[in-house]
Design a protein around this nucleic acid. Structure first.
Lengths: 148, 148
DNA sequence: TCATTTGTAACCATTTTAGTTACAAATAAA
DNA sequence: TTTATTTGTAACTAAAATGGTTACAAATGA
C-alpha cells in the first residue's frame, strides 16, 4: 500500500475543479470521483492550499475551487507542493577515510540534481488546463461544459 | 528510515569497483566505504548482477568486479536494474461513472511517462566512468590509481 | 437554530527499507 | 585434504511512509 499516489490524485482533483469553475466541489464528491475517503482528499488539499492553488469554504454550498486559472497551474507546481525531498535520496555517512567515500556525495548530488531538473522541466510544460483538455477530448469537453 | 538509498549506494559501489579494476573488492570492504552492513551490499549486488553489471567470486581473494568497462555502464541502466515501478504511481480505481474519473488515467500516464523519460535521458548521459572522474578530481585520480 | 462542510487529530493495517544474525555452498590457499 | 574466506540467501526486527477510518470541533449559510 506504499506507492505514493498523491501526485496522481492531486492532478485528478485539480482537473475536476477546473471542470467545475462555476461551483465549489465538496471533498465528498471529489472522493467519489477519485474512489477514496474524503479525509484523504482534505489532507492533499491542505498542501495545495498552502501553495495558493485552491480555496475552500465550509458549510452549505461550500467546497473547493481553484484559486487560480487552470491555465496558470503547472504540474511542476503541483508536484513541488507535495514533496520536499529530492527525487533520489543520498546515503548518509559514507566513510570519510575512503578516497571514494569522502568524495562521492557531491558528485552524486550533481547528476541526481540534473535528472530531477529534467523531470521538473517536463512537468512545468503542462498545466492543469492542458490536462483537462487532454482528459476530455475536445468534443466531450464542449458537451461536458454545456451541462455545467 | 524509508527513503530509498539503493540508487545512491549502487552508484557508490560501482564507482568503487571502477576504481579497483585489478582486484575484486569484498562486500565487507564495500560496506565499510558505504557505511552499512555487507548483506545490504550483497542484496543490491544481486540486482546488479542480474543485469550483467557485476561479477563475483566466493572464497579467498574473492569479491566483486565490474562485468563491463565503467565507460559502458550508464546510470540509467543502474537505475533500471533497481526499479520496476514507474516514477509516479497512478491511483487505482477512479470512478468509471465520472466523466473525469473515467478518462484521467491515460492522460496522466502520458505526461508522467514524458517526465520519467526526461529524467532517464539525463541519467543515460552519465556513465560510471564519468562519475569516477567527477568523484576524484583528475589529480586525485592519477594519485589514487598509482596506489593500486 | 440546524444541516452541511471543512479542518485536524488520532489510530490502524500494510508495505518498504535498512539492518542484523545465521548458516549453507563455493572457492582458493596452505 | 583441510581450512579460512567469501558469497548467497533466508529469516527476523525496527522504523517510517502511506492510505483508510473514526471522531469531533469550528465555520458557514439556509
Amino acid at each position: 500500500m506504499n506507492a505514493n499516489q498523491q501526485f496522481s490524485v492531486s492532478c485528478h482533483i485539480l482537473v475536476l475543479l477546473a471542470a467545475s469553475p462555476a461551483f465549489p466541489v465538496t471533498s465528498e464528491k471529489i472522493a467519489e470521483s477519485v474512489d477514496t475517503n474524503p479525509v484523504v482528499i482534505r489532507r492533499i488539499m491542505s498542501h495545495l492550499r498552502q501553495n495558493g492553488m485552491v480555496d475552500s469554504r465550509p458549510g452549505a454550498n461550500g467546497g473547493w475551487r481553484l484559486a487560480r486559472p487552470a491555465s496558470q497551474l503547472s504540474l511542476h507546481e503541483v508536484h513541488q507542493a507535495l514533496t520536499q525531498e529530492t527525487l533520489f535520496a543520498l546515503h548518509q555517512h559514507p566513510n570519510p577515510d575512503c578516497p571514494i567515500g569522502s568524495r562521492i556525495l557531491p558528485a552524486l548530488e550533481s547528476i541526481f540534481g540534473d535528472a530531477q531538473a529534467a523531470m521538473e522541466l517536463t512537468l512545468a510544460k503542462t498545466t492543469v488546463g492542458d490536462l483537462l483538455d487532454k482528459t476530455l477530448g475536445m468534443e466531450h469537453l464542449i458537451e461536458f461544459k454545456e451541462v455545467l
